[in-house]
Amino acid sequence: PPYTAPSLPYHRLALVTGRHRWWRPLAGTALVLGSALVVAVAVMAGGEITGALLDRPVDKDGFRVWGGIGETGLALLSLALLTPPVLLAAHWAQRRPAGTVSSVTGRLRWGWLGRCLAVGLPLVAGSLGVMLLLPDPSGGSEDMVWAGLPDFLLGLAMVCVLVPFQASAEEYVFRGWLTQAVGAWCRSPWVAVVPQALLFACAHGWGTPWGFADLTAFGLIASLLTIRTGGLEAAIGLHVLNNLLAMGLSAAIAGALASEETAADMGAAAVGVDVVMLCGYATVVLWLARRHRIAAVSPGAETGAEAGADR
């Protein structure tokens, strides 16, 4: 008999076509990891070739030097290009529509994403402002030096162009692919949520225990929103705003974009502010999702015709 698509939560969407086999998530994960390596090498090679054509200086290891803005841009680009491999892994390895990585409706719901961005903007901006007022946890008192208008505009342009793609790509990898890969085997969403949150924290490097805890909390809350709202939009909105505002501010400070510090290096006070913001964002988004009846499960064969235009 023909396959009848069931109604599924987000983390179980790998089963939507009925073609799941135990090995497909493993094959898809290998494809994503292999593609990430190829992309990183390609971006590095492109930077070296372009640097040679432009006669950029060479460091002690023989690599072309692009400066803080250029090297940060290359790092962001290598992450921004990871979304297509995730979509291809869903389509090729798991034999399902690539759009099911975006949401239970099989596409990215732009209207819902816009609402999440509107909710998150004042919260993220407010938390960042409070963090700027906190004392340096290391006890230092480093003065912030204006980067200068040309460097600021160049850095801000780079951030505005690349950060939305970089942040959304991380969501497609962690809250999207990894959650659904584990969800293909396990019915409980928490079995899928916890590993990706820990891997997300590890991917940002080890700074302080507080920073690691903050990144883990971000991964858990972003996953909760993804499953409860049936898509990546809420997590993407939060991640994009967080990185865009933080790196946009860094573009105004001399040398800040070249810094190797990440969220993993946060102190206890900053983590407290950030977690309060994350909880506030999650509360408002979940309330809006209920009010606007945002679909949290796929429509299935019986209810597909009833799915709303923005759900």
Rank of each mutant, 00 (worst) to 15 (best):
R19L: 03
W112N: 06
L199H: 05
V43D: 04
E71H: 06
P137W: 13
P1T: 08
F200K: 02
S168F: 12
V86I: 04
G267W: 06
P25I: 07
C116Q: 13
I236W: 06
M131S: 08
L79D: 05
V273G: 09
G267H: 08
T226D: 07
G308R: 15
F165R: 00
G114T: 09
R95A: 10
H20S: 09
W66F: 08
L76F: 09
L134G: 03
A52N: 02
M131Y: 03
Y10D: 00
A296T: 12
F200N: 09
G308S: 07
A301C: 04
T262A: 03
V240D: 07
L245G: 01
A282E: 15
F218C: 06
D61S: 06
P195L: 00
A42R: 01
I227M: 06
L81F: 05
N242Y: 05
E142K: 04
A90Q: 09
T216G: 10
S7N: 01
A254C: 03
H11N: 08
V39K: 00
I69L: 02
V130M: 08
V194G: 11
A118P: 08
A217Q: 05
L278N: 15
G139P: 00
C186M: 10
G155A: 04
L154W: 06
H204Y: 07
L153H: 02
N242M: 02
E260I: 01
A98T: 11
V119I: 15
A269V: 12
G205Y: 06
L162P: 15
